[in-house]
Design a protein around this nucleic acid. Structure first.
Lengths: 338, 338
DNA sequence: ACTTCATATGTAAACGTTTACATTATACTT
DNA sequence: AAGTATAATGTAAACGTTTACATATGAAGT
């Protein structure tokens, strides 16, 4: 039914080897033969079986990417940039939604390995360090994105979360806010931990005492952002400003503030990690820490593909970790009225 | 290096056939043997080669999905729901970003075919009808999502765009708006065409004359939404209200309105196709037509997998097309002041 | 003990490519 | 025209599974 390389060979009156050579653009095929073959391909409507090719070549020309939460705008952009970049290099992408869930992550790692992807980009939950380390040891190409895994030596592309968070909180302090709350995500993700660290550093540098009741830890998702913000705003020592540490929690926080009928920045100041189109059209526009999200993804993909395509046995040098800078975009959600 | 089924067989002291049977949970393997095999698998840290399996079985347990624009929130949700659903049935997903570009779409269709995915979910640009029809004729399982392709008989899961648009515009009219502009996307996508149709029907039913200068056609992307809205608002016969036909153009429109310093709904009313979290936290909250996006994706995936797994030769019956209803969510962006 | 039958396991071909190696055709010397 | 080097093509094994078919094992019936 389905036609294969043999059919093409027969039709073109050559061997399968020659057909294969033509299809793979190998040098050393007479122009005349090449044309015959291509004509046969055309006539038969032949399309190569990439599965068979992958089996023989031990190469799938595909990479896998496991993201934290595909619904998040952050990861959409990551998905797009990884895909664009992979594409540019002739790879296609298998997108997996880890959902911030270690078991799902592990499951996907296995699926990707089993499917013999040429490499994996992983936004780790941090929980499967043993498996990931084994993966790397067994020469699977892995690049971590956005976060690290404790105890695992792996190339990575990150953002400087500590400095980013520091800038955000420092800005609040400079604006005159003193009582500053933080709505953060999992502390076992390096992102969560580092953003908290930046927050703590900033208040310490300003001589503000740490107040545990102003520190709320959730799971990086919208609902949790909403719930924790409500908590902060309902408790007796309500903060004057809030720092939310990712885009989804920020949305949640803004919903909570809206629902409680508070106004920004008069009742409450807010600065969010991650920029977005809607941050600009809100009233007032929201001050944010902007990450170079697209670049994050494209650098990770490029690094991964470089690793895949570098012939030389890895010299087992220390892993290459790129850390990108963030940018504070000041808008009006942090304009404390005096 | 990499261990395979032979190594496992040797270690367990059985044949490869038996190992395969254990791994695939075939009945008729003695419990004792099964345990031996599993022990060997464990010891050797064996992981099956899905590529080889796919080749032999002519089944990859994967589906491809080509979306219009992965950056759009609409398609993120689609991606997630398709992936969730595919997963539930034991399939994994290859996500491709067609980018509303017919050539990219064609390219991806070929890649997916070549990679022998078991089925394809496609948000078509409408331009590759010949290739898609061939695909279907050659028994590739395809389900169209969100839009149809003229002249192609294919199962599909859609939304009732005409009625949705009608409801949106009717609502504007009911609120007292008469001069209503529309910022629409490609008319050669059925979504674009139908939403325009609903708009036209609504104004006709209300006895309002069609005014071509109020009808702006773009490409469903943010920039185009912004540009066209600016045009509408700058021209001499400025509309009193605008209907934007997808989420990305809506963002663009809102940015334009904001930049021009106009206020909603006093200077301009607006109703958008597609709901979103930020529609709720904007000031004022935006009236929208909500699509059942998650359901759209999960139904498409389910339909596709049903098709894949139905044994019986397709009886070539008429394609099954599901059309889901939309919902008008009235908020404050359409409250015309009297 | 000898069939008979069911159950468990093994053997080897097949899936559709690529590619090392062998062979043949062509071009170039003399 | 023969010999040689080079270029073009062909042959067949290999990739790692699954599975039809063959065979071995064991239990049950006589």
């Amino acid at each position: 039914m389905k036609i294969n390389i043999k059919d093409v060979a027969r039709k073109a009156g050559v061997s399968t080897a020659t057909v294969s050579r033509v299809l793979s653009d190998f040098p050393g095929v007479r122009e005349k033969t090449k044309i015959q073959v291509l004509k046969a391909v055309e006539k038969l409507n032949y399309e190569i079986n990439a599965v068979a090719r992958s089996l023989r070549q031990k190469k799938t020309n595909s990479i896998g990417i496991i993201v934290g939460n595909v619904l998040s705008q952050f990861y959409s952009v990551i998905a797009k940039s990884v895909e664009d970049t992979a594409n540019k290099f002739g790879y296609h992408t298998i997108l997996c939604n880890g959902d911030e869930n270690p078991e799902k992550e592990l499951e996907y790692l296995k699926v990707l390995k089993s499917n013999r992807v040429d490499g994996i980009i992983l936004t780790p939950t941090g929980k499967n360090s043993e498996y990931v380390q084994n993966l790397i040891n067994s020469r699977t190409k892995v690049v971590l994105l956005d976060r690290l895994i404790e105890g695992v030596d792996c190339d990575a592309v990150l953002v400087d979360n500590t400095i980013g968070a520091y800038k955000a909180v420092k800005h609040l302090i400079d604006q005159g806010y003193r009582k500053i709350g933080i709505v953060d995500g999992y502390l076992d993700r390096t992102t969560g931990a580092e953003r908290l660290k930046g927050y703590l550093q900033a208040i310490e540098d300003a001589g503000i005492a740490k107040d545990d009741s102003l520190i709320k830890i959730g799971n990086f998702k919208k609902e949790s952002g909403k719930k924790l913000t409500k908590e902060l705003l309902e408790q007796s020592n309500r903060p004057e400003a809030i720092f939310t540490t990712n885009i989804d929690m920020s949305i949640g926080a803004l919903i909570a503030i809206k629902e409680m009928g508070l106004t920004i920045p008069d009742d409450i100041g807010i600065v969010c990690f991650d920029d977005s189109d809607w941050a600009l059209i809100l009233e007032p526009p929201i001050t944010v820490i902007r990450q170079p999200v697209y670049q994050l993804g494209s650098m990770a993909a490029e690094l991964l593909i470089k690793k895949i395509e570098s012939k030389r046995k890895k010299v087992k040098k220390t892993p290459s970790i790129a850390t990108l800078e963030t940018e504070l975009i000041i808008r009006e959600s942090t304009k404390k009225k005096i």
